[in-house]
């Protein structure tokens, strides 16, 4: 009886999740009249704007991940090692992006860093790119921090630091050669999640007027019929890829640890 209800719940739930995926896939194959074809994908891949925006978002993802790691790993490490009293404050800040909507944050950016402000980041394309990267780093902050902090919990930060110091290592060496490799799995998990978030992000890029993948998809969606579902399939594949890689590093790390 119980099992029947459980199966029913699961099957209904899965149906809800599978239908849209099926729908978009089927629709994306219907560009040619009367038969299934990959025409929509051909058109998408032939569009130079696709590759430009895709490349732009990819580059921004990389920048965001670097900023995130440089920002989060030393901070989380330091809080665990020397500043446990700062933990509530730091955790509160890292949770803020889950509470303050992205659109509000980017609105603040636009008004705060306009051409007549103390830091006129929106004045140039490069400045705006920096601002967008920082915005993405903000969006990814809750996930990155959580991931790294959990990773740090599993190693004895204090002992590792003292061991490295007794061997003559400086702070940079400790962070780069000792701490980072030990939380690599957590960092990579956070990085892939960041990649997934940034590749599909729309609001910030659109409002800062940068040629990112999200606004490109939206623009195409407003004007075309068959390419959007093809883009959706591609975007889904990217997300799936990111999550798959995340699982893979975690599993790989478990395997490594089991061998050791």
């Amino acid at each position: 009886m119980m099992r029947l209800v459980a199966w029913g719940t699961l099957v209904l739930g899965c149906l809800y999740f599978l239908l849209p995926l099926l729908g978009m896939t089927e629709f994306s194959l219907k560009m040619r009249r009367g038969e299934y074809s990959l025409d929509a994908y051909r058109v998408v891949f032939a569009d130079p704007r696709f590759w430009e925006t895709f490349g732009y978002s990819l580059a921004l993802s990389a920048a965001t991940i670097v900023v995130g790691v440089v920002l989060v790993v030393p901070t989380a490490y330091w809080v665990r090692l020397r500043l446990p009293q700062a933990r509530p404050f730091v955790e509160f800040v890292t949770l803020l992006p889950l509470v303050i909507p992205a659109i509000v944050i980017v609105f603040g950016y636009i008004r705060l860093y306009n051409t007549s402000s103390f830091l006129p980041l929106t004045g140039s394309a490069f400045g705006t790119d920096i601002l967008l990267t920082m915005g993405y780093a903000t969006l990814a902050l809750p996930y990155m921090y959580r991931s790294v902090d959990t990773g740090l919990r599993t190693i004895d930060v204090g002992v590792l630091t003292e061991a490295a110091q007794s061997l003559g290592a400086g702070w940079f060496t400790i962070l780069a050669r000792i701490i980072l490799p030990n939380v690599m799995v957590a960092v990579l998990s956070g990085a892939f999640l960041t990649l997934a978030i940034v590749m599909g992000e729309f609001t910030m890029a659109a409002l800062l007027n940068r040629p990112a993948f999200g606004p490109y998809m939206q623009l195409l969606g407003a004007n075309r019929a068959y390419e959007p579902p093809a883009l959706a399939v591609i975007a889904f594949a990217i997300t799936w890829g990111c999550m798959g890689l995340m699982q893979l590093v975690t599993r790989f790390a478990k395997h490594e640890r089991a061998k050791a």
Partner: peptide, 15 residues
């Protein structure tokens, strides 16, 4: 994480 623009496309193609 599959939110935003592509999600809208998926539902338009379905419903």
């Amino acid at each position: 994480n599959f939110a935003g623009v592509p999600l809208a496309f998926a539902f338009i193609a379905t419903l």
